[in-house]
Write a protein that binds this DNA or RNA. Structure first.
Lengths: 242, 242
DNA sequence: CGCGTTCTTGACTGCTTTCAAAGATGGTGG
DNA sequence: CCACCATCTTTGAAAGCAGTCAAGAACGCG
């Protein structure tokens, strides 16, 4: 059994935001301060309902959540995952309504996102902005995944993306990471059935592309996997400022 | 790309932005002014390449474009359409790179988006913000469409969304609108093949849900169609400010 | 009027779903 | 410490939706 990449509170969020832009000491302190005011949600609890007034800007300190769309006939589609260190409740305009529900997939801890004062020299506002750009990037990738990839490719592509996102928050060790999502959860995200997700995983195991057991994934040779699905890193969303 | 000072009515753009927030006379004038500086792109020309420095914020004055992802093996996925009156090149942070290519589907005319000064009483900044929120909403819907709807449902759902979006820009008459996209284009957007799009359209014709000929669509009974796919309007992204 | 693009149609293949049920797995209480 | 239960994973067989390949018809443009 592989030991967990221990998610120490606030660490993931600080790790991620500091990776997106250089933060001042004051901003780092503000993050630490904010992380003391945690709001917790039990697994499977709804964090925000579709059509409700949007959540206050928040940072996921720990746990996995997802945006989800429920259809009237019971089908559901996970639109995207929300991982530790990522932001939710980012508002575009005044008095927004949540366009999608957000549901906790595990126990989730949220803290308020410290307000970023544009005028300062600190990079928190920039970090938030890059985070928003990344979120959009992930949406584009999810669309391409669902539209044009086979089940096999979708799963690989998603694993690579998730690894990259968790790495941003410092939650990967070597090529493995915790994956606290059931195969049914994966199915709802990848537009498949849980049965077929299971078959696909087993195929990938037999081909020694992936190890997956006890909620921990290990990708055997990420660069090779990336080639299989034409995977492109999201690291390059900003031009070098220098 | 050819700059052309020819005065083209900024009707669609003004219609849309004014619908998203109330604009001051100065802002309306700025829009008219801006619409005199058109940049034109021929059909199928690339407006911005993936990974290039992001386009300046612009408004689509006329024509259809799309965000597209090309795979190395030739597959392609249209991530979303960009319709007259909608914005492109909206930036989250400094020095962004375009995360997706944008390609003209018809001849396209672009104009610079007039800068919105936050401090004023005019609502242009708000209109831009709501526009961004809507764009995100459309991405979520595209994900749900590709992930959980059948070919039949995808097409219906997409037609309803497109009608709603074009209506925002004042480009629908009764229940019909221009659809300058080939069935192969639809296939690339809906994650299908053109053959199957064709068969689906014909099925819908036989069932008298839709008329489609000569690049013009007419939806027979939108409310009924909406029920068939659990379609939800995007009108309600903002809480009533009153 | 002619040619290229787009639309249509048919036959066949195959990926993914559906339905059903049998194994694991992990947490809980006795 | 183990039995027990709910949840999750795994497996099999059959059906179906959408893809592929191919070719003919219709359309629109020059």
């Amino acid at each position: 059994m592989v030991s967990n990449p221990a998610p120490v509170p606030a660490l993931a969020a600080t790790h991620r935001l500091a990776a997106l832009a250089s933060l001042s000491d004051a901003e780092l302190a503000a993050l630490d301060m904010s992380a003391r005011h945690l709001t917790r949600f039990a697994a499977y609890r709804e964090i925000i309902g579709e059509g409700r007034a949007e959540l206050a800007p928040s940072i996921i300190i720990d746990g996995w959540a997802c945006r989800v769309r429920h259809f009237s006939d019971g089908r559901r589609q996970i639109l995207g995952f929300l991982l530790p260190g990522e932001l939710i409740g980012v508002r575009h305009h005044r008095d927004p309504l949540a366009t999608t529900a957000i549901v906790a997939l595990t126990q989730v801890a949220l803290c308020p996102a410290p307000p970023a004062t544009e005028s300062e020299q600190g990079g928190l506002a920039e970090a938030y902005a890059v985070s928003a750009a990344l979120e959009q990037f992930y949406l584009f990738r999810q669309i391409a995944r669902l539209g044009r990839l086979s089940a096999y490719e979708r799963l690989l592509d998603w694993l690579l993306e998730t690894r990259e996102r968790l790495a941003l928050s410092g939650l990967t060790t070597a090529d493995s990471f915790r994956l606290p999502v059931t195969q049914e959860g994966l199915a709802d995200a990848l537009g498949l059935t849980s049965v077929h997700v299971n078959r696909t995983i087993q195929l990938m195991r037999r081909e020694e592309l992936v190890e997956l057991k006890g909620g921990v994934v290990r990708l055997i040779d990420p660069p090779r996997l990336a080639k299989l699905v034409d995977y492109r890193s999201g690291e390059v969303t900003a031009a070098p400022s220098a």
